[in-house]
Amino acid sequence: MQNQFDPRTTTGVNTTATVGVPRAARDAGLRSYMLSVYNYMASGVLLTGIVALLFAPYAADVLVSASGRGLSGLGWIITLSPLAFVMVMSFGINRISTGTLQLLFWAFATVMGLSMSTIFIAYTGTSIAQTFFAVAAAFLGLSLYGYTTKKDLSGFGTFLIMGVVGLLVAMLINLFLQSPAMQLAISAIGVLLFAGLTAYDTQKIKSMYAYVAGTDMMGKVVIMGALNLYLDFVNMFTFLLQFMGDRR
């Protein structure tokens, strides 16, 4: 998914869309485009939070198996559903309409809320709130850096994505090892990786404007850009909560 909208690999987009357009108009269009991305992303996070909070009283009965060890069948379906939505949105972008992509994004945010509802059982409300606001402040700073920096961050992208793959492997291994020390390391590394991806993705989303402005792809790129930033925010929040959250 990370390379889906890389300007160097995108095809079928009118790259001369902004040629001859006054700079002021381009800047206004870019601001509107980025604002749309942030609005989608923030709305998705808000929807996820509301769903998680409302579903929390029922999460233990629905998501946890009768033995209390691991997830129930429905719990596994809810937990894996967000990944299915991301794959459909990423690989089906050229075949589905903008309206359908919007519906998939809201559905994704909803099932993410269901799957994340267990944090209200595992952690205190105070630590959840503290972690959320800490991540929100860090996200704003990192995204602002990615938007304003003149440094090309594309070279860091490959390194960061490889790091995420390695992190997933480590998480799978720790499912069997159940090592607290390894889990602590995974959480710390996860925070750093998704912090870096926040700046990288912001710059990549910004760079895409020149390629999609005035084309039918613009609406889709806005939604997928919001999805990328949403994933950066939620993963950074989850790993930081595991790292410093107070358990009940």
Score class of each variant (00 low, 15 high):
Gly29Ile: 11
Ser207Cys: 06
Gly225Lys: 00
Leu241His: 09
Arg31Leu: 10
Gly157His: 11
Ala210His: 02
Gly125Glu: 04
Val86Thr: 05
Ile50Tyr: 15
Asp61Glu: 10
Ala59Met: 11
Gly20His: 05
Thr202Glu: 06
Leu160Pro: 13
Ile205Met: 05
Asn3Glu: 08
Leu104Val: 03
Ala56Phe: 13
Ser143Leu: 02
Tyr38Asp: 05
Tyr40Trp: 12
Leu104Phe: 14
Tyr58Val: 13
Lys220Arg: 11
Leu104Lys: 00
Ala210Trp: 00
Ile93Arg: 12
Ala59His: 11
Thr79Asp: 06
Ala25Phe: 13
Met244Gln: 07
Gln2Ile: 07
Tyr211Trp: 13
Ser81Arg: 09
Met218Ser: 08
Val37Ala: 02
Phe194Glu: 03
Ala56Asn: 13
Ala181Cys: 03
Ala137Gly: 13
Thr148Leu: 10
Arg247Asn: 00
Asp246Tyr: 03
Ser154Gln: 14
Val221Phe: 07
Leu227Tyr: 01
Asp6Ile: 11
Thr118Glu: 05
Leu71Trp: 10
Gly92Glu: 06
Arg247Ile: 04
Ala213Glu: 03
Ala136Cys: 10
Ala109Lys: 02
Leu241Gly: 10
Arg248Trp: 06
Tyr147Val: 04
Lys204Glu: 06
Phe105Ser: 01
Ser179Asn: 14
Ile223Lys: 03
Leu184Arg: 15
Tyr33His: 02
Ala129Gly: 01
Phe120Asn: 12
Leu184Val: 04
Leu104Glu: 07
Gly166Trp: 14
Gln102Arg: 10
Leu63Ala: 09
